[in-house]
């Protein structure tokens, strides 16, 4: 079954079209990258996908169900996880608490008032496993605010993994990463690839072409081409869009 199916999506802000008749599908297990110049409407797209904004017209189907007007928390419960472009962690909590909350989100209702959450092994152990997977286990007890930018980005991935999501929306996971951190992130994403369906929104072209199964190119809110990395590289319209910017 198609994981995500976006058809004819439109969204305007005061006359400016941020999303323009956008159509996109994600097949199970695929890593699908969306690239595009600055201001192409990538963030608006992801906001609509996760439900923080609603489109003016068009439809979003997730796992076969219409979710166009569904609230973010209900989409998340259906199995959609999102990482944020600007690091968006709960800074005054510990690293492990952040990830454990993601586990907790999947573990039934949280209207539970009595048992201390930090003593519930079924929340803490998966959280620690995810931290291990992204190489942050030794920092589990640190306050989140004390970690570096690269570590924050990896926490984002750990959180998305911890939700056991069917679909991960990764909003520029490479943003602001240089050298070693960037290489580590690519390796991390490669290790996840195949396990989960991933929509990757990314600026870093090297990373995108190294990781993606398919790439969609977004220009002024409209997808001008979709295809395998090689096809995209050879596409004239894409070259023009990018050359035009540079």
């Amino acid at each position: 079954m198609t994981v995500l199916e976006v058809t004819g999506l439109n969204k305007s802000f005061g006359g400016i079209k941020a999303t323009d008749d956008l159509t996109l599908t994600l097949e199970p297990g695929e890593l699908h990258a969306v690239i595009g110049p600055n201001g192409a409407g990538k963030t608006t797209l992801i906001s609509q996908l996760c439900g923080l904004q609603f489109p003016d017209t068009g439809a979003i189907r997730f796992l076969g169900r219409d979710i166009t007007r569904m609230t973010p928390h209900r989409r998340a419960r259906m199995g959609m996880a999102r990482s944020f472009q600007i690091t968006s962690l709960i800074m005054d909590m510990s690293v492990e608490d952040n990830v454990a909350l993601a586990v907790q989100a999947r573990a039934g209702t949280s209207f539970r008032f009595i048992r201390p959450a930090r003593r519930i092994a079924s929340l803490r152990e998966p959280a620690r496993a995810m931290l291990d997977r992204v190489g942050l286990l030794d920092k589990a007890d640190h306050p989140t605010v004390a970690l570096s930018h690269g570590e924050h980005r990896r926490m984002e991935i750990a959180i998305a993994l911890a939700t056991q999501a069917r679909l991960m929306l990764l909003d520029e996971p490479m943003a602001g990463l240089g050298g070693e951190d960037a290489a580590e992130m690519v390796a991390l994403l490669r290790s996840i690839k195949g396990d989960r369906t991933i929509l990757l929104i990314e600026h870093d072209m090297d990373a995108v072409f190294a990781l993606a199964d398919r790439i969609s190119v977004l220009v002024y809110g409209h997808i001008i081409a979709t295809g395998a990395p090689d096809e995209i590289r050879a596409n004239a319209a894409v070259q023009q869009a990018y050359l035009g910017e540079d």
């Binding site: 800074m91 909350l101 907790q104 949280s110």
Partner: peptide
């Protein structure tokens, strides 16, 4: 409790908790 973790999380970052 788990409930308390959620309200503290929502204090720190409501959007994150909703997503």
């Amino acid at each position: 409790s788990r409930f308390g973790m959620v309200i503290q999380g929502a204090k720190g970052n409501d959007e994150r908790m909703r997503t």
